[in-house]
Simulated assay, not measured.
Amino acid sequence: MSSAPSSFEYHAKPCRVLFGRGSIQKLPEEVKRLGKVKPLLLSGPRQSDRMKPLEAVLEHASITPAGTFANATMHTPIHMTEEALKYAIDTGADILVSFGGGSAVGLGKALSVRTGLKHICVPTTYAGSEMTSVLGETVDKKKTTRSDDKILPYAVIYDVDFTMTLSPAMSATSGMNAIAHAVEALYAENTNPVTDLLAQEGIKALAESLPVIVDRPDDVEARVRALYGAWLCATCLGTVGMSLHHKLCHTFGGTLGMPHSETHTIVLPHAIAYNSPNISEAQRKLAAVLPDSDGDAIKGLNVLLEKLRVKRGLKEFGMREDDIDIIADTATGNPYWNPRPIERAPLRETIRRCWAGEEARADL
C-alpha cells in the first residue's frame, strides 16, 4: 500500500464543463444563463466556415450574434487582440464565444480579461487552453505569460462532433500538446495527488486513443476518449505551475513563430530527458500509463511518437541551426521554476536535439 502525501495544496478553479456529442445545443442556454443576448463569435480564418452550426443553434433560440471576428492568430499577438477589442466594443458584444483551437481560445481570454466579458469556449482540438487561467501573449517576437483567475473561461462545451474532421496529423500533435500539460504537472513545484490522478488518467486516455485516430480518424469511440483525455490534461495545467517544457515552447513560439502543437510534440520527450535526474517518481507514474514503455517513460514517449508518425525536428518547420543559441540565451534569461537547475550547456544540447529531430535520451 502506498503512503498518503503528508501535505499539499489544491486549488479547484470554477469552470462549467458540458461534454458529449451534440452538446453544442446547450450553447444558447449557457448564454441566457448569464442574461446575455449579443455573443461575439471568435475563430481563426480556417475555422470561420465551420461556425455555421453555432450560428444556427443561436438563431434557433432567437439569439443574434453581435458579429464574428475570424482573425485569431497563433501565439495571440497583441496587435490582433487590439483589433478584436475595437470590434467587440463597436458591435456592443456582451459575451464572448470562441470556436477552434488555442488561437481562438487565447484571443477570447485576452478579450475577456480586458473587458470583463464572460467567455464560453467550444474547442475543436485537444490543445487545452480552455481549462486554464493562463494567457500567453506575443509582443515584438517575445511571448510572455500571466496567470489570473479572471482569465479562466466561464464555460467549456466539449462537443466531440467538432473534432471528427480534425486531421490525423493535427489530432496527433494536438493530443501530444495535451499530454505535455499533464506530464509537466506530474513534477510541478505545486503538484498534488489530485492533479496526479487527473494527469495519469488523461495521459492514458490520449496515449491509447491517438494511435487509433491516426489510423482510423472516423473512430467515434477513440475521438470521445481523446477529447476526454484532453479535458483532464488541460485541467492539470489549470491547477499547477509550468516548468522547462512550457518555457522552451513559449520561447520557440514567441521568438521564432514555431507552430504551437508541433513544437510541444517535439519538445516533450527532450524536456523529460533534461529533467530525468530529478524526477524519478514522476517518470515512474508516466511510464505506468504509457503503452510499450517497459518502465521507461522516455522510451514510452519515443515509441508513441513513432506510432503517431509525427515530425520530430524543428528544422522541418523552418528553425535554423543558428537559432539554437538564440533560444538558449532567451530560455535561460528568465527561466520558470524547474526541478533541475537550468544550465546553459545541457539546455543548449536539448535545444539542438529538438532542432535536429533526434530521439530523446537521458544522458545530459
Rank of each mutant, 00 (worst) to 15 (best):
A345H: 14
K307C: 11
P335C: 07
L117K: 07
T173L: 00
M1G: 15
A110E: 04
A297T: 08
V37K: 13
R348I: 09
K32T: 06
R340H: 11
L40T: 00
A61F: 06
Y187G: 11
L232P: 09
T263P: 06
E137F: 11
V303C: 11
L304Y: 08
E343N: 14
V240H: 05
L301P: 03
L304I: 00
D218Y: 09
G175M: 02
L256Q: 04
A360F: 04
G100K: 07
T68A: 14
L364C: 10
R348Y: 13
F99I: 10
L166S: 01
T64Q: 07
N338V: 03
A226M: 13
D323R: 10
L256V: 09
G253V: 01
S2L: 15
V310N: 10
K52A: 12
M319L: 13
F8R: 12
C121E: 02
D215E: 14
M74C: 10
G313M: 09
G101R: 02
L248N: 02
S243P: 00
S293P: 03
T81Y: 03
C121F: 00
A127M: 03
V37E: 15
K26E: 14
L237F: 14
P291I: 04
A222G: 06
F69I: 07
S167R: 00
I203L: 00
T132M: 01
S112N: 06
G108C: 07
P217S: 07
Q283A: 09
L210E: 06
T81R: 07
S280D: 12
G333Q: 13
K285T: 11
A70Y: 11
E9P: 06
H119T: 03
G67N: 01
A110Q: 11
E59K: 12
V214W: 07
H246K: 09
S23L: 05
I120V: 00
Y274H: 02
V105E: 13
I89A: 14
G102K: 02
T144W: 11
E316A: 12
R309H: 15
E130L: 04
Y87K: 12
Y336T: 04
K204I: 06
E321N: 08
V224K: 14
M80E: 15
A104V: 01
I324K: 04
F317N: 02
C236I: 00
V183H: 01
L256H: 09
A297W: 07
M164W: 01
F317H: 04
A356D: 12
T165C: 02
L18T: 11
E83Q: 13
R361Y: 15
T251R: 05
S209N: 05
I327C: 08
A271P: 00
G108F: 09
H119D: 06
N192Y: 03
L305G: 12
N71I: 08
H264A: 08
T195N: 13
Q283S: 15
F162D: 00
K109Q: 10
R146F: 10
D140W: 11
V57G: 02
G238M: 01
R361G: 11
